[in-house]
């Protein structure tokens, strides 16, 4: 190793450490600042709450055994919506790849549905599915599925035609082309769709809970704002941050494992 390269590595490591430290610092500044502004009553703490109040609320929720039930309700709805939408959306994309006529028939509808704000359908969903978890999961699926279909299908259609020709010259039928080429080539597409769906499925379940529910973080946020308990609203939002971040981390881990397998 040359001295120059060592210097480069050192600089690189220093940058990494600085990066991590800055991130932690930023978090502390944010929390500290928030606490301070609230403590000194620069802004009315009734409106902005404070980190210590948030911790207290979470502790109280935990003691009254409500924390687990609210968190698990939201988590269950979100994960169910996420999985159903991803699997179903991918299956639909596969079917549309096989049947180009059907694909062309559905194209304008997919595009319209994609640009429609799915939230507008909320009231209808409640009429159809009642006020239970089904309606919320359906909302979450609805928000994720269209983008899954569109994303996967465009990935499938972008596979090099020369590769398809190659497989066909080796007597591969459409089914083997799908499995051995088109789907395998789109594992990265699937991973990026998963990442998008993490965010979208949370949007779906929280919106669903806003509209109708007696449980979950979305319910707590709405309830808190109705009775002017902003501490509860903030606490629920903080919990939401952790859950969504955690789910993203799981997907990232999955991505790392898969990418490692492929190179």
């Amino acid at each position: 190793m040359t001295a120059e390269h060592r210097k480069f590595l050192k600089k690189n490591r220093a940058r990494k450490i600085a990066l991590h430290l800055s991130r932690i610092l930023l978090l502390f500044v944010f929390i500290g600042g928030w606490e301070l502004i609230s403590y000194l009553e620069i802004i009315d703490p009734f409106i902005i709450s404070s980190p210590s109040a948030v911790v207290k609320v979470i502790g109280r929720l935990y003691q009254s055994q409500q924390l687990i039930s609210h968190v698990s309700a939201s988590l269950w709805e979100t994960v169910a919506g996420f999985l159903i939408a991803t699997v179903l959306g991918t299956v639909i994309a596969v079917l549309l790849w096989f049947n180009t006529f059907l694909r062309d028939v559905l194209e304008p509808y997919l595009i319209t549905l994609n640009s429609l704000p799915k939230i507008a359908l909320g009231p209808i969903i409640i009429v159809w599915f009642g006020t239970g978890k089904t309606a919320i999961i359906f909302m979450s699926v609805l928000i994720c599925i269209i983008i899954t279909v569109i994303g996967m299908l465009s990935g499938f259609c972008n596979v090099d035609t020369e590769k398809i020709m190659l497989m066909r010259s080796l007597k591969g039928n459409k089914f083997t082309v799908m499995i051995k080429l088109v789907f395998s080539a789109n594992i990265p597409t699937l991973l990026s769709v998963l990442k998008i769906n993490v965010g979208l499925s949370w949007v779906g379940s929280i919106i669903g809970e806003y509209l109708s529910s007696r449980e979950g973080l979305g319910y707590l946020i709405v309830y808190g704002s109705q009775v002017f308990q902003l501490d509860l609203v903030m606490a629920s939002t903080v919990l939401l941050c952790f859950l969504a971040g955690g789910m993203y981390a799981v997907v990232s881990l999955l991505e790392k494992i898969i990418r490692k397998k492929f190179s």
């Binding site: 020369e162 080796l170 007597k171 395998s184």
Partner: peptide, 28 residues
């Protein structure tokens, strides 16, 4: 039997060289 070698190598990025080379055997 005919063996076609396309304009670009068209090796599959997610397969090892061994697996790439055996693609035809698998399909046939």
């Amino acid at each position: 039997r005919i063996g076609l070698m396309p304009q670009r190598d068209q090796l599959f990025a997610w397969r090892t060289i061994e697996k790439n080379v055996c693609l035809g055997l698998e399909l046939l």
